[in-house]
Design a protein around this nucleic acid. Structure first.
Length: 165
DNA sequence: GCCAACGTTGGC
DNA sequence: GCCAACGTTGGC
């Protein structure tokens, strides 16, 4: 999952412990949250528009997709007049903080890793703020990060689904 | 700040 | 249903 640190950073999540992932206004990203993200799934937290951009930490899904109320709030920058409260168009998941990496695994580093050549986030034109991550890629990023936590080796690959890229 | 890539909108 | 115009994303 991507976020501009100026808007909401991994440090903000560390402070808040959990966060509602509001403001997603892209159907494909919404569908990933709705259809593929389940409680307990691991999440790579990525800082976009950062110096450098890259994966900065780990989180987990702690609440499955539910209506994004900001779409109904006319004072919110995420307001969407077309989202009917009776049939919410936009959803969000909640995530909980797990770990901030000692150092950012930069986009440059991701691009330089042969094993990550197929990872979505390194593909040209890939702008989705919520995107699925293959288990092998996920594990590789954790290794590059020197992460202390993460899905256990050998457990089901349900692991998630989401990395932010 | 630039701009390529991409999604959405709306006229026709 | 096409497609031009426009807005956003996000690396650089």
């Amino acid at each position: 999952m991507k976020s501009e640190p100026e808007a909401y950073s991994i440090d903000d999540l560390a402070r808040d412990k959990t966060a509602e992932w509001d403001g997603i206004r892209n159907y494909q990203a919404r569908n990933y949250m709705r259809d593929d993200m389940r409680v307990g799934d691991w999440v790579l937290f990525y800082h976009s528009n950062a110096k450098p951009p890259g994966v900065v930490g780990l989180a987990r899904v702690c609440k499955e997709a539910h209506p994004d109320r900001s779409a109904f709030d006319s004072s919110s920058k995420y307001y969407d007049a077309k989202s009917d409260p009776e049939e919410p168009r936009w959803l969000m998941v909640d995530i909980e903080f797990v770990e901030r990496f000692a150092a950012t695994v930069s986009l440059e580093t991701l691009k330089a890793a042969p094993e990550l050549a197929e990872m979505l986030v390194v593909q040209k034109g890939q702008r989705l703020s919520v995107q699925p991550v293959e288990r092998a890629h996920f594990d590789r990023v954790l290794a590059l990060a020197g992460a202390r936590r993460g899905p256990r080796r050998g457990t089901a690959a349900r692991a998630s689904a989401e990395a932010r890229a």
